[in-house]
Structure formats: C-alpha cells, structure tokens
Design a binder for these strands. Structure first.
Lengths: 355, 355
DNA sequence: GTGAAAGCGCTAACAT
DNA sequence: ATGTTAGCGCTTTCAC
C-alpha cells in the first residue's frame, strides 16, 4: 500500500504472490496462458490487498483511455441535461468513463482550449453536445488535419465530412402545423426561439412553408421572436394580438414560451385570445398540466445522447482496428406530436393522442 | 508526432531544441532555473510542434490528477442538473477536470463499483451529488479506513465525521408555513414528496411543527404523500379535499406537484378549492407563469454545486500539504421565500416579494 | 543553468 | 506457463 494514495501496485501483488508482474498482468486481463493454480494464488493476493489496476498507467501504455470527452452547455435547461443523461447511461454500458466540460456560453467560436484539456487526458473521442448557435460551429471545418480524434456533433445542421446526430426540428414544425390546419385554424401565427439558434430557424421554416403551401398568405408576417423564456412568450403573444387581431392560433417555439402565452391570454381579454389554438415544442413534463393542457411536439433528447454514444464508440472501434476512419454520417431522429386540449376546436375532454 | 495519436512528446521537443527533456519540463512548468535564451528556443519548438504535455503521464508521476469524480443521479430533474452546472463552473475555475458518473437509481446502497472506477482513474476527490433516499447513505459510515480520498456529500442529513453541503429544507418549510399563517390561512394541509427522501421528510417536519406551534390541531392529519410528479400532486389534492373539505391552503412539497394541484382545483368544483392558498418548493422557472402565479420556496441548487467544489478543493489542498485531514464540516445553505399570487388572501396584483 | 539516471504503474515483445 | 527487458510520457533526484 502506498500510504499516500491508499493504493497497492502490481509489483506488491507480484512479490506477495511470488510471481512476476507480468503474470499478475495476465491474471487481471483474463489472459488464457496462466495455470489454474497460479491464477488462483494471484487472485487471492489481489483480493487480500484490494488491488485494482491503475487505469492511468494502462491508458498511458495502451494509448487508449476508454474515456469520452463530453462538451455541453446550458445544463440548467432540460434539453442539454436529458441528452447528457442519455450519454451517461450508454457510456456506462459501453464501458467508457466521461470527462465533462460545460461551456459558459453557447456561442463560443474557439474550442481550442477545450480540446487541449480533453486531449491532454487522452480521451478516445468527443461528443460535442452544444446546440448550434450563431457561428459556433464554423471551426469544425478547419480542425487540424492531423487530429486523429473521432468527434460526434449534436443538434446542428448536417455538414459534409462530419458526424451529426440531431432531432428533425423541421419535421416537428410540420407536424405541429399540419395538426393546426387539420383542426380548422386559418390564421396561424408563430413565436420563434432566438433566431441565431439553428433549431429555432428550422421550426420557423416549417411554419413558413406550411403557411405558404396552405395558401394562408394573410398570416405570412404574423410572427415574433422570443428567447425561449416564458416571459418572452407572454410578450410576443401580446405583440401578435396587437398587430394581428384576427389570429386564431399560434405555433410556439417551445413549451416554456407557450406557457407564457397561456398566462398572457386572460389579460388580452378578447374572445379570440380565449379560444386561441396553441401548439408548443419539447413536451416538458409540466406541459400536460398546463390549463389548457398543451399540445406539443415531443423530442426524445435522451435518445440523442444514446445514439451519440453508439456512433462515437463505433468510430473509435473502427479507427482502433487500423481501418480507415468510417464515413461520417448524419442521423436525424424523428419527433412526434402529442395532442392535448390546447389545440382542439372541439374541446372534447383531456385525453392524449400521440401520432 | 506519433502518427497514431497525433501527439508530440517531450522527447521530440527536446531533441528538436537541442536540449534535454528535463529542460523542456522546466520550461513547460515555468521553473525559474532556465536561461532566457534557452527558454525562448524551447518555447518556439513547443509552438511549432504544437506540443502539449500529457496530463496522464503527469498524474501518474505526481500522484495528483487534478480530476474530481462527480456522482449524480436523475439528471433529467432540474435540481441535480443545476447542481452539476454549479460544479462544472467552479471546477473549471479551480483548474479541475470532472469525471462524471450517473447512478441509474437514487437508492443504490453499494457504491463500491463506482468508487473503484473513479479510483482507477486517480481522482483527487469525489463529490457525491446524489440526494439521500432510503438508506442509500448507510455505507458512508463504513468506508475503508485506509481510503485517503476526500469526499463531499450533497443533500443529506449532516452526520459525524463527513463533509456535507445541503439546503436547509426544514427552514424552507418554516418560511412557507409562516407566510401562510401570516396570510390568515387556518387549515393548512401538506402534500409531501416521497417520504423515503430526506428532503421530503424535512419539509414535512417543518409543516408539522408549524401546525403544532400555531395550535392548528384540526389539520394535523391533513396530509398526503406524492412522488414529486404533477400527476401525484393532482391526485393528492383530490384526496385531501375529499377527506378535509374545510382545507383552505396547502403547502406542497415541490412546484411540479403544486402545478398538479392547480390543474385539479377546477374539477373539484368547491369555492374553497377556488380560493385555495398554495405554496410550492423549488422555484422552477415556470412557476412564475402558472395561473395563479405560484408562491414558492427558492433553493439555489447551482450554489450547492459551487460550495461543494470549494469544499473539496480545500480538503484536497490540505491533505496534499501533508496536513492532517481537515475537520469534516456540514454546510447548510438557506432557501428564501418568493411570494406570488397563489398564496395571497387579498389578490392584489402579480408583483413578487422575496424575503 | 543544464543533464543523466531512475521510476510512476502498467503492458508488449520476446525470451525460456 | 512464466519471466525479462524495454518503454508509454513525464518529473524527481542528484550530479556537474
């Protein structure tokens, strides 16, 4: 036992068992070429000394750490933390440890220091779990050629030559719009997230395209920008009602802003506001208990994390087998629509329908 | 450059600069005993080769990794993820990397495998950021003596000989109750979180003590157990109204269950239900936009994470300086009350008051 | 001010 | 089936 670290070494085990360190190494790695007798003897000493091999020393010599770098941002939001949770679950199953970095801001355009920190600790791969905001991805195209590091990017516009896992936000927006139109709404507004966010732009594009395809030109300008917060949703709703009194429904960029809209409608005081059709995005746990219960687009962010780990481990394994790096590929996961009362012209109960 | 890892070594730098590895080591560690000239020459080569020292090799020899183990659970909930966010921010400032583990369940009574994984990677300390549930802390008293590992526990009942950082949940409950009583409510019920949670029991104890001290014996049995979810809050509210029609207010164990109560009151259909006073716990961002806006107890979980990092780094530093381990201490952080409309007998507007 | 030798804890490659 | 030698990338002596 090293008195400073409380750790025993392979050498202590070896000498206590009367064998070489190499034999101990063979035992702890489950190699076949050890006699049953020796193995038993060594294992006994290992248990007695509570010896556990240093992953550090192993990483150093094998040049493989079984550690993944995870870069996230905005953990206080449900999206990033659910994704992180998916990552921890899958990584643990796959036998990888996780080195976590959280960016203080979403829009960091120079990731050099982050990569240095991760590379210094020999991570086998990196999951860049920061949503695309502004041009916080421009650097991905000009990473050094020599960088032999598998990277999977999350929640961004697919690009050439990199691996991406995202939820199809455009599709989510189309689901929301198709539902509102089917319900008979004819003057559909939109409250966007901050438009430097890729996800917000995708949802808005879906709204715009659906409006156009349905020939609802009258509402083409009927939108306002929010910042994901309930306060901004309430403010945007008031602005929309001011400028477009005929509005009969709103596709809102996320559930928090939709809650802001719900809280603002009584103050607006018009009948239209009372009957307003609303669809949100995210399906946060609270949204089923809003009054009225919120129709929303569900995205499985936990699964984004799981898929990201599958991808990165695949990339690591294949590069480790000396193969050419695998073709980078983009994976788009599909959201689904959860119908509740906030979007029903016929207010028939509170049941939920998922499509 | 090692073609496999894309990494250059100290030896390559040394030979390119025509010095020994020792001199390079002195330069990268900012030691004074290098001539200005040599230092400049070595630094140039370092930049050219984009050399960055391996933290792994350094950790191995110095027996110090500047890495913290963080064990969390339930990241999809706002509490744990906000705490984690506080940890990432402080750790980054303090120059520590973070090795993250998420337990699949809150009630894990044998942490051995987790500690093994962290110790194998030579973490300098561990932050156990899992709330106390059931007897998932009983092991803390019987950790091996020889374990020279600083540990800070979060969100648990203070105990002898260990370091704890928690929010004072009892105090939070008393704040909520004092406010309701001051507002003139006289029949105050309680919806608890799951009672195997320490936090839930603390909040309940505060309710019980306040009831007793105020001489409100009539409501002493007027409580029901929930499971933190909105659904359980709604169910508990109906049960309470059934059994105690005179109830005029409820202290609810968290904001999500309080939302469930709000969603259920219209269905109950009594006048008492309409005027029900409600106080929640947590101050989730949505609660200001509930209808009515929710009075609640705010707890700064982000700060719990920050304080935990301060504590663990202090413990690490002092053990590193060869001193006796510092006295374990318990830190209790104070919550505060956010008053909104859900608890005002006089419904005078929506302003917020924090005390 | 600089370098040589030894070693952190482990494993790969080659013995025997 | 087991041991020996060398070395992963760095730092700590202790020379000079």
């Amino acid at each position: 036992m090293n008195p400073k670290t409380g750790r025993s070494t392979i050498r202590q085990v070896a000498s206590a068992a009367g064998v070489s360190t190499q034999t101990v190494s063979r035992v702890i790695n489950g190699r076949p070429d050890v006699s049953a007798d020796t193995r038993r003897r060594v294992q006994t000493v290992i248990d007695e000394l509570d010896f556990r091999p240093s992953a550090l020393a192993r990483s150093l010599i094998s040049q493989r750490s079984y550690t993944l770098g995870v870069v996230t941002s905005g953990l206080r939001h449900t999206g990033p933390s659910r994704t992180l949770s998916g990552i921890t679950e899958s990584a643990s199953e796959a036998g990888y440890a996780l080195l976590l970095e959280e960016l203080p801001r979403f829009d960091m355009d120079d990731p050099t220091s982050i990569f240095h920190a991760l590379l210094a600790r020999h991570v086998d791969g990196v999951i860049w779990a920061v949503p695309e905001v502004g041009n916080n991805r421009s650097w991905s195209a000009r990473l050094p050629e020599g960088l032999q590091l598998p990277i999977v990017y999350l929640t961004m516009e697919p690009r050439q030559n990199i691996s991406v896992v995202s939820i199809n936000n455009y599709m989510g927006g189309r689901l929301a719009m198709a539902h509102l139109i089917e319900q008979g709404y004819r003057y559909i507004g939109h409250i966007t997230g901050p438009l430097d966010w890729w996800e917000a732009r995708q949802r808005m594009a879906a709204w715009k395209d659906a409006i156009q395809e349905a020939g609802m030109d009258a509402c083409a300008e009927c939108w306002a920008e929010g910042n994901w917060s309930s306060a901004s949703g309430a403010a945007a709703a008031k602005k929309l009602f001011d400028r477009f009194p005929k509005i009969d429904s709103i596709f809102v960029g996320n559930d928090q802003m939709a809650l802001g809209v719900l809280s603002a409608t009584p103050d607006i005081g018009s009948k239209a506001a009372e009957r307003l059709g609303i669809v949100g995005f995210d399906n946060i746990p609270e949204s089923a208990y809003f009054r009225p219960a919120l129709t929303t687009v569900q995205q499985d962010q936990f699964n984004v994390g799981k898929v990201a780990v599958e991808e990165i481990t695949r990339m690591i394994d294949s590069s480790w087998q000396g193969q050419e790096p695998t073709e980078p590929k983009s994976i788009m996961l599909s959201p689904s629509l959860i119908v509740r009362s906030s979007s029903r012209r016929l207010q028939n109960g509170e049941g939920e329908i998922s499509k």
